[in-house]
Amino acid sequence: MKTITEAEYTEQWEASLHKHYLAYNVDGFDRVGRCQNQYSKDYFWEIQLRPGLMVEFIEDDYHRCLNKENHHDDSMTVLVSKFYLSGVHRVLTPGIKGVKEDYEEKAGYNYLFFLPDIKEIEISPANQRLQFLRIFLELDLFCAFSTDFDILPDELQLLKAGKSAPRFHQAVGKITAKMRDTLREILNCPYHGMMKRMYLESKTLELLVLQLNQWNDDRNSTLTRTLQREDIERLHYAREILSRNLDNPPSLMNLARQVGVNDYKLKMGFRQLFGTTVYGYLQACRMEHAKQLLNERSLSIAGVAHAVGYASQSRFCHAFKRQFGMTPSTYRRV
């Protein structure tokens, strides 16, 4: 079957809109459309939640197979999340490093990908209803949520590099019961106006959290199955090194080299064995040692800060208050 370009499909699709329905700003910030063309009968709902975050729901009834070439330009610095409720897409991406040349996205599964500057052929078979929800998250917004990226899979950690980050397409797993509940809440939002926007943003972020957690859990369970006794001993040794060097801890890479594991196994194994990240453990130890030194009263607050590895007293005070809900001086008085 002939493959049509994105421009050709868009021209056909826009021509069909003259006979059908398109509405902008239905509730102040979304867009709804219905149309019919030679391939399918389409419905879409787009919601711009905030700069850098958009969600859309697609429902297309295909009566004819469509092979369409898509182009993701190099300015596409977005992480894309998809949840398929029905139907199937086949995608051809020949010659793209880090991405299968031929893969499917299908009902009951969810996917996460970063694919700037590529051409792909998307195949939508006939005689099916294709339904999926798709989230677009700008990398700047994704990276703004936290600096604690070492709890994430490597593919997501590398997104800190922006559009130069390696491409990936991840089949995360089956849509869980919690994901289905959240999808249902998004598609049946009971609110309007400002409250609708707030509600949809919270549920969209919740859906992303469930997806990231599923990917993490899958990686962690795989790692647990592959951890040997010597790996566990090395991870305990890494914890001891951190405990003994609170004032001048090794970098993540140096710590991994010292104990004889790679940095991925160190990060994921640490989280699996001890229930926290490498940095989280170091931070907790620093704060507990700081409490001990404050109780002993032999050092000034600046001295305590230096003893637990802080060059800046103000940063130490901020970290202490975030951990314990009070400043070091207040803690010492209490």
Rank of each mutant, 00 (worst) to 15 (best):
E8K: 07
H289Y: 11
Q323V: 02
Y109F: 14
E185T: 02
K97F: 01
N188F: 05
S298R: 12
P116W: 03
K68S: 06
A302G: 07
A107M: 08
Y39T: 05
D217W: 04
A319H: 13
F113E: 13
T93P: 00
I4V: 15
P250V: 06
C143A: 13
C35L: 12
G95S: 10
N127T: 03
D150E: 15
R219M: 11
V32K: 09
S75K: 14
A107D: 03
Q258K: 13
A302K: 10
P166F: 01
D218G: 11
Q48C: 04
L200V: 03
M1P: 10
M54V: 03
G162Y: 06
S329N: 11
D60F: 06
Y237W: 02
E288N: 07
F316H: 11
V278C: 15
M194T: 03
T182S: 10
Y62L: 11
K196S: 00
R184K: 09
K82Y: 01
M326R: 15
D42H: 11
A256R: 06
A307F: 04
L212V: 04
G162K: 13
V261F: 07
I47C: 06
M253H: 05
Q283P: 01
I175E: 08
H72M: 13
Y331W: 14
R134G: 04
G52Q: 07
L299A: 04
M326A: 10
K160N: 12
I135F: 09
T182V: 15
F113W: 05
E296I: 07
D181L: 09
V88Y: 02
T330S: 14
F113S: 15
V32G: 02
M1F: 02
L17N: 02
